[in-house]
Amino acid sequence: METSTVAAPPLAVETIGLTKRYPLTWKRKVLVALDGLNLQVKQGEVFGLLGPNGSGKSTTLKLLLGLIVATEGEARVFGLPPESLEARRRVGFLPENPYFYAFLNGDETLRFYGKLCGVTGDKLDKRIEELIDLVGLQNGRERPLRSYSKGMLQRIGLAQALIHDPDLLFLDEPTAGVDPLGSAQIRDLILKLKKMGKTVVFSSHLLEQVQEVADRVAIFSLGKKVLEGSLESLLTENQSTQVLIPAEMNPEQQERLRKFIGQTGVNESEIRFTRPHLSLEQLYLRTVQAQPDFVSKDSPRP
């Protein structure tokens, strides 16, 4: 038992029995959007909330932002109540399908949110430059947001969420509706954020996208958390081992290799030779990026 009076650094997110119910007035029934969630996210972690539509991911994030009130249970952000200004000073949020003021351009948008958070003057100018660079929106600075593509909206949303340099980011479906290229860029961004030491909690119903970034995930179904753990532990098939050889092998070479492995005591007949498949996504990215005159639609032309 730890008896030290020096508190351990508070968890970035902690929920205890967090529950949200909506009464369905016309049916005299109750819809349980979130059911007794216990969750702990450590500082510096990238945490994924997975689950099909309607499983309670957005509800969890809204509760953690104080946008709605829990029916039961408690939520803490850095040990603070989520609706407090202190908590929200340390939190950035990218909502699901974000929509911003269509009449502002990229610069104006960031300026508006920055000022709201109390960032002003040179500091704000510098911050805007950094963020535009970080999310790669150089060509969106002067354009009104109504002309933005979905991917650009997600990226300006990310920049907006980061404007006051928060320690914790909540991203609701950051890659939903974005093309694979944009998705990949957003994933890279999340990794960059992790390197900067930020905590990231994001939700997604597209499992593949979670793989490369999340340290840990929780899987939701019908408002309940049904599984939680590190990606490593959840995805490793402990009963097998894969060896990757970056060359083609003829049947004779394969036979020799099988014998060689057999010497280690593994049952030779259970060894299978296959060719690794590219995922369609990897193929797409490789092909598009290999074009000699490739320029991202969203990046400035040379």
């Binding site: 949200k20 119910r21 909506y22 009464p23 369905l24 007035t25 959007a33 709605i68 009130v69 829990a70 029916t71």
Partner: peptide, 9 residues
């Protein structure tokens, strides 16, 4: 729809 707890209401 309003899911505000009764005491807050």
């Amino acid at each position: 729809m309003n899911g505000l707890p009764l005491n807050l209401r």
